[in-house]
Measured scan of single mutants.
Amino acid sequence: QKEELKEKAKEAVKRGNKDKARELLKRAGISEEEAKKIIKKIE
């Protein structure tokens, strides 16, 4: 489940939808700070 949400978040970032990505990562139980780092890494 968590990995699936991370994959979806990756796709969202690639489409330029960072808010959606952050939302998905939060749903995966990832903190706001972690989510920001992950999104930065994907960009």
Score class of each variant (00 low, 15 high):
Glu23Asn: 04
Ala9Asp: 01
Leu25Gln: 00
Lys8His: 07
Gln1Asp: 13
Ile38Cys: 06
Glu34Phe: 04
Glu3Ala: 09
Glu4Ala: 13
Gly29Ser: 02
Lys26Glu: 11
Arg27Trp: 10
Lys20Gln: 13
Glu3Val: 06
Gln1Gly: 12
Ile38Lys: 01
Ile30Ser: 03
Glu23Trp: 05
Glu4Gln: 10
Lys10Asp: 03
Lys41Thr: 12
Asn17Tyr: 12
Ala21Lys: 02
Lys14Asp: 03
Asp19Tyr: 07
Glu4Tyr: 14
Lys20Thr: 09
Leu5Tyr: 08
Glu23Lys: 04
Glu32Arg: 05
Glu11Asn: 06
Ile42Trp: 15
Lys20Ser: 09
Asn17Leu: 11
Lys36Ile: 14
Lys2Ile: 15
Ile30Gln: 01
Glu23Ala: 06
Ile42Tyr: 14
Lys20Arg: 11
Lys20Asp: 09
Leu25Glu: 01
Ile38Ser: 01
Asn17Trp: 10
Val13Ile: 12
Arg15Pro: 00
Lys37Tyr: 10
Ala35Glu: 01
Ala28Val: 04
Val13Ala: 08
Arg27Met: 14
Asp19Pro: 05
Ile30Val: 11
Glu34Asp: 08
Lys37Arg: 12
Glu23Phe: 02
Asp19Gly: 07
Ser31Val: 03
Lys20Glu: 15
Glu7Leu: 11
Glu43Leu: 11
Gln1Arg: 12
Glu34Leu: 06
Leu24Ile: 08
Leu25Gly: 00
Asn17Gly: 03
Glu3Phe: 07
Ala12Gly: 01
Ala9Pro: 01
Lys37Val: 12
Ile38Gly: 01
Asp19Cys: 11
Asp19Ala: 11
Lys10Phe: 11
Glu23Val: 03
Ala12Cys: 06
Glu43Gly: 05
Glu33Gln: 08
Asn17Val: 02
Leu24Gln: 02
Ala9Val: 15
Gly16Asn: 05
Glu43Pro: 03
Glu7His: 07
Arg22Tyr: 15
Val13Lys: 02
Lys2His: 11
Glu34Trp: 05
Arg27Ile: 10
Val13Asp: 00
Lys20Tyr: 14
Leu5Phe: 07
Ile39Glu: 00
Gly29Ile: 00
Asn17Phe: 13
Glu11Val: 06
Asp19Val: 08
Lys6Ser: 06
Lys2Leu: 15
Ser31Thr: 10
Arg15Gln: 14
Ala12Thr: 02
Leu24Gly: 01
Gln1Leu: 14
Val13Thr: 04
Ile38Pro: 00
Leu5Pro: 02
Lys26Asn: 08
Gln1Pro: 11
Lys8Leu: 14
Lys37Cys: 12
Lys10Tyr: 13
Glu34Pro: 00
Asn17Arg: 09
Glu23Cys: 06
Ile38Leu: 09
Lys26Pro: 00
Glu7Arg: 12
Lys20His: 13
Lys41His: 10
Val13Asn: 02
Gly16Trp: 01
Ala21Phe: 05
Ala35Met: 08
Leu25Pro: 01
Lys6Ala: 09
Glu33Lys: 09
Lys14Ala: 08
Lys14Ser: 08
Arg15Gly: 07
Arg22Pro: 00
Lys2Pro: 08
Glu11Gly: 03
Lys10His: 07
Gly29Arg: 00
Ile38Asp: 00
Glu4Leu: 13
Lys6His: 13
Ala28Gln: 02
Lys6Asn: 06
Lys40Gln: 14
Asn17Cys: 13
Glu3Tyr: 08
Arg15Asn: 14
Lys40Thr: 12
Ala35Thr: 06
Asn17Pro: 01
Glu7Thr: 08
Leu5Gln: 03
Lys10Leu: 10
Lys10Trp: 10
Lys14Gly: 06
Glu32Cys: 07
Ser31Tyr: 03
Leu24Asp: 03
Glu4Met: 13
Lys26Gly: 05
Asn17Ala: 09
Lys8Trp: 10
Lys40Tyr: 14
Ala35Trp: 04
Lys6Leu: 15
Lys8Asn: 05
Glu32Ile: 07
Lys20Phe: 13
Leu5Ser: 03
Ser31Leu: 05
Glu11Met: 08
Ile38Met: 09
Ile30Trp: 12
Lys14Gln: 10
Lys26Gln: 10
Asn17Met: 11
Glu33Cys: 07
Glu23Ile: 06
Lys36Pro: 01
Glu11Tyr: 04
Glu32Lys: 07
Ile38Gln: 03
Leu25Val: 00
Ala12Leu: 14
Ala35Tyr: 04
Arg27Thr: 09
Ile42Glu: 04
Glu43Ala: 07
Ile38Arg: 00
Ala21Thr: 01
Leu5Arg: 01
Gly16Arg: 03
Arg15Tyr: 08
Gly29His: 01
Leu5Thr: 04
Glu7Val: 06
Ile42Val: 09
Ala12Ser: 04
Lys41Asn: 13
Lys40Asn: 13
Gln1Tyr: 14
Ala12Ile: 04
Lys14Leu: 15
Leu5Gly: 01
Arg27Tyr: 08
Ala21His: 02
Lys41Cys: 14
